[in-house]
Amino acid sequence: MDRAELVELLSPEGLRLLDGLPEWDSKADIVRTVADLRRQGHSAGLVAAVLSQAKLRSRARAKFGEFAAHMLFTEAGLEQATRLNVAALHAGRFARAGIDHVADLGCGIGGDALALAAVELEVTAAEADEVTAAIAAYNLTPFPKAEVLHLPAEEVPLGGIGGAWLDPARRTTSGGTTRRIADAADYSPSLDFAFGLAERMPVGVKLGPGTDRDVIPAGSEAQWVSVDGDVVELAVWQGAVARPGVGRAALVIRGDGAAELTAPADSEDAPVGPLGDYLYEPDGAVIRARLIGDLARANGAWMLSDGIAYLTADAAVDSPFARGFRVLDRLPADERQLRQALAARRIGTLEIKKRGVDVDPAALRTRLKLRGDESATIVLTREEGRHVALLVERI
């Protein structure tokens, strides 16, 4: 979205048209919709702007729920925006630390600033991109204690501000295509600036969950967060917003519930042993936080093979930190023999899970030539270093 498009969108005509559109339907005849709106006298630029926003609002419901219907977005801003339930956890950190004025530096479309303002904190949000800053200002209009500055993070005056939240730009948009920035050194603002603020005030920094762990400053709290099985962020906390004695944390959110595994540092892996009656797949946040060993010891489990994130045990365990499978049978690891074994069981629908083996599940599924009316799940992995194929069922 460019400046001219935003001006049209924010006009009374533009906002009325946007709010009056029916809910976005990806199967609708868009050409006909455009033609209908043009016949009503709306300019081509305005029609394109409102339809783009309607599509983004529809996608944004997964992150912002009902609030999305009253917000504006950019493509890159929505991609990087924090889910509202996770942003509320960020805001809670600052509130519990007694910080009543927070700078959101690099606020994007304002997702985290919304959560901070919603718990009645004063918020100074800043965004270097002019269009994105204007969108954030629109989204924060209901909160009188929140202001948005069109400034780079490095130029924001921080006098009187008690803490800072930063979500460095990790995506860039060019020619209508949004792509991830691969090198953390190219983030904006830079990580040196973000973590350097901790010398002045408590700081939280949001990073991608796969960020190189070498960038995490010593003595900080690193918390990986997953939502409904998807690891969504690494939050690095410093100063009063970091918890004493917590260096690594895995926060697992499923539906309305949450559970957390914490430790002072990476945990030592559990011993390796033979396959038990049950197989466990740790949540991605636990894997990223390197707390698999602690999870194993807490549940009487052991590693199935060195360096592979599967645990095994002889007892069924109900844990929010892992998905469990009952092991039904060992199948041949050889592909031809595996195909014969599945055919003998009349398996026509197959879920393939894998760790520690170089195989494309979709391509393998085609080569297995599945036929039959039964369904199954197999796990391709290693047991004490050896390739295995396991027939399992979820528990």
Rank of each mutant, 00 (worst) to 15 (best):
D329M: 02
P320Q: 02
R323A: 05
D314R: 12
G324C: 13
G257R: 13
D269E: 01
P282I: 02
P264A: 12
M303V: 04
L261F: 06
P271R: 12
L338G: 06
W302F: 11
L331R: 05
L234N: 02
R339D: 06
L331S: 02
R288G: 02
V252I: 01
G239N: 14
D269G: 04
R254L: 00
A313F: 13
A316G: 10
L234C: 05
E233N: 02
Y280Q: 10
I308M: 14
A316I: 13
Y310L: 11
V241D: 08
A309R: 11
V327N: 06
A242I: 08
G284P: 05
A316R: 09
S305Q: 03
A265E: 12
L338E: 06
R254I: 00
A301L: 09
Y310F: 11
D334Y: 14
E268S: 07
G273M: 04
A242C: 06
D306H: 15
Y278K: 10
Y278W: 15
R326S: 12
G300W: 14
I292M: 13
A313Y: 13
S319Q: 09
V317S: 09
A313T: 06
G273H: 06
P282R: 08
M303D: 00
L234H: 04
E268I: 08
A270Q: 12
A309P: 09
D269C: 01
L331Q: 03
R339P: 05
T262E: 03
P264W: 15
P264C: 12
I308F: 12
I292C: 13
G284I: 05
G284M: 07
R336A: 06
D314K: 11
P271I: 09
A316Q: 12
A315T: 13
A240Q: 07
R254A: 00
A301K: 09
R248I: 04
W237F: 08
R243T: 06
A263E: 15
A289T: 01
A249R: 04
A313S: 06
A322F: 01
T312L: 14
L328E: 02
R297I: 15
A258N: 00
R297Q: 15
Q238G: 08
A249Q: 03
A322I: 00
W237L: 04
D269V: 02
L328Q: 06
A313R: 06
A298W: 14
M303A: 04
V246Q: 00
R248G: 02
G324M: 10
R243G: 07
A270K: 12
P320D: 07
V272L: 06
A313I: 07
Q340L: 04
V286K: 08
W302R: 04
V272S: 06
